[in-house]
Design a binder for these strands. Structure first.
Lengths: 322, 322
DNA sequence: GACCATTAGGACACGATCTGACCTAATGGG
DNA sequence: CCCATTAGGTCAGATCGTGTCCTAATGGTC
């Protein structure tokens, strides 16, 4: 009665998202309108493109099914927190090509997340393994979401940056795009003080802050942000070539190794090899190989071999002592 | 013009969820109504509880900020896929107390996920490390979501179950609740053939299928599903006690170990100890300890010590060969 | 087969609501 | 100071939504 039609439609949408059948009578009770109006509302939703499936007969009812477009998701508190925590935990090591969308979704969610839920998210998140790039470079999820919002909103971004040799600087930028390379995050931005394009490693960024000042997007000289990043990476030669052989079928190994690490090529029935290039996360790679749970050998690089040897010795000490 | 008011409100809500400022003029253009109507719509949203912040002056505009309640999330395709993949990946090892909500959110999302996106999700998900309970027991995310839907919709659930000694059986149940114990998933359900309550390990379930037949919820004899599970677990005595000492500050270790594994207690400036009980995931625990990246020793149980020793020897071989 | 539940939708009348076109006021930035 | 923005009042007319009647069709159960 007092609630108007649009509000009722939203409420109806949220009810229908519960995975169960709703008889018209129950809906009309909940919404406080007549059955006829409920039918009309369902019609309206259908016209809007949300496919409401109806089953006739006794214990029939309405139910929202998969359609062409995704309806607005109506989440309860716990579900929202679960998604936020899940995305934060996964933000660093998500599937290739999906991490940017993941951060965008997180930014969208956190933009409207009530503060009480925000507190719960950060408490729970503290209980999880922190977001590390593999070699201990920790990225706060807030950093990523603030940056993603600034990119989307075309707002200038101010932050502190620790350059490669460790000297701290302050930057004022026009953020262009956030790019992830499997394990590391980069910001491609126009540096206003230096009057040129730069790429920044996100794990070296501190206290990012959207100034609120809008800017008109510039044309990136190379065209694509990912390609621009690849070029500037290429100059720095950040990759190691590595090679490891496993005494197990390729499928077995593939299932236990993240895809961006490379695809195992079969060397026979019970043996396969991965050769690929990887960033400088040699420490982390050793542990990852150990978790495959089969015999293996490492060929290159020397650093990795050395690291595996050390880890083996450490484990032997751990078991021998006491 | 042709779109009616509720549709326009939903559209407006989706526009405002982009993290940027929207001037009234642009909104009125996009929505195809007059500026005055946009103002009125904004008013309506505010009355519905969605806090729309407005900034005056040139380049001011509207923006949706965090309020008391969570507005319906309007996601684009990529964001939806990112969330689905993220939740699937995290469903097995989510933070304690959040996994059930996480699965619920996933079920809600997948219920309305268009089929083209569903395909993308499963492709991408295949590229990720599969969902394992730590000791190789793999759970398909579909299994969890089908079960969650059946629980929520009070529909009977039919599935194949591999009992402890490996014999396959078929079950017809009234699913009551899905419970996660940090690393393993259980379904508490009323088994119709056996006419009694049972708990099922989800990793032993195959081909779950909601029959569509509704049922009236029964009273669980013990009251709480989690408590019921705990009792039937207690009988089976599934836990090992373990103890490990690290040559690093407690904070350092805490940051590199999942919280459910236990909290490190400081033993001095540069040393700490974790003692806790854990399921039967000894193989996996050894790798996890190795990833802490500091010297450590393992005291108990004997299986874990043995496992660490083996892993050390394997790594030494891996580095020595070639 | 009969019966009962459900969804589906037409017709109509009354009232509520929505919209656009005018106003004026207030505010922030350059 | 000027220009952009948001904010809101008022009014007339059209539009829309609602509840109360109908009737039809369908699926399950006894």
């Amino acid at each position: 009665m007092t609630t108007d039609t649009p509000a009722r439609l939203l409420q109806l949408l949220s009810l229908l998202q519960t995975p169960r059948e709703w008889p018209g009578g129950e809906l009309s009770d909940r919404l406080g309108v007549s059955r006829r109006t409920v039918r009309r509302d369902i019609d309206r939703l259908r016209e809007l493109g949300y496919p409401v499936q109806a089953s006739k007969g006794s214990d029939g009812g309405y139910r929202l099914v998969a359609g062409k477009a995704l309806p607005p998701l109506v989440l309860d508190d716990e579900e929202a927190v679960a998604i936020a925590v899940g995305l934060r935990a996964g933000a660093g090591h998500a599937v290739e090509g999906l991490d940017e969308a993941s951060v965008r979704a997180l930014a969208k969610l956190e933009q409207v997340l009530p503060s009480r839920l925000r507190r719960r998210v950060s408490t729970l998140q503290a209980a999880t393994t922190p977001l590390t790039s593999g070699d201990g470079a920790v990225i706060a999820p807030e950093t990523l979401t603030v940056m993603a919002s600034a990119v989307a909103g075309q707002e200038r971004l101010r932050f502190a940056y620790r350059s490669k040799d460790g000297t701290p600087t302050k930057r004022l930028t026009e953020p262009h795009r956030l790019v992830s390379t499997g394990r590391r995050w980069y910001l491609v931005a126009y540096d206003l003080d230096r009057a040129d394009w730069r790429t920044f490693r996100v794990d070296r960024v501190a206290d990012p802050f959207a100034t609120g000042a809008r800017f008109a997007p510039r044309e990136l000289p190379t065209g694509d942000a990912a390609e621009y990043l690849r070029r500037s990476m290429y100059v720095r030669q950040e990759a190691y070539e590595f090679e490891a052989t496993f005494a197990a079928p390729a499928a077995y190994v593939a299932a236990r190794v993240p895809a961006w690490l490379g695809t195992p090529e079969p060397l026979g029935e019970d043996s396969c090899r991965i050769r690929s290039s990887v960033g400088d996360a040699v420490e982390w790679l050793a542990v990852r190989l150990a978790s495959v749970d089969c015999e293996f050998t490492v060929q290159e690089p020397a650093e990795l071999v050395q690291r595996v040897r050390e880890l083996g010795a450490r484990l032997s000490r751990a078991a021998a002592d006491n």
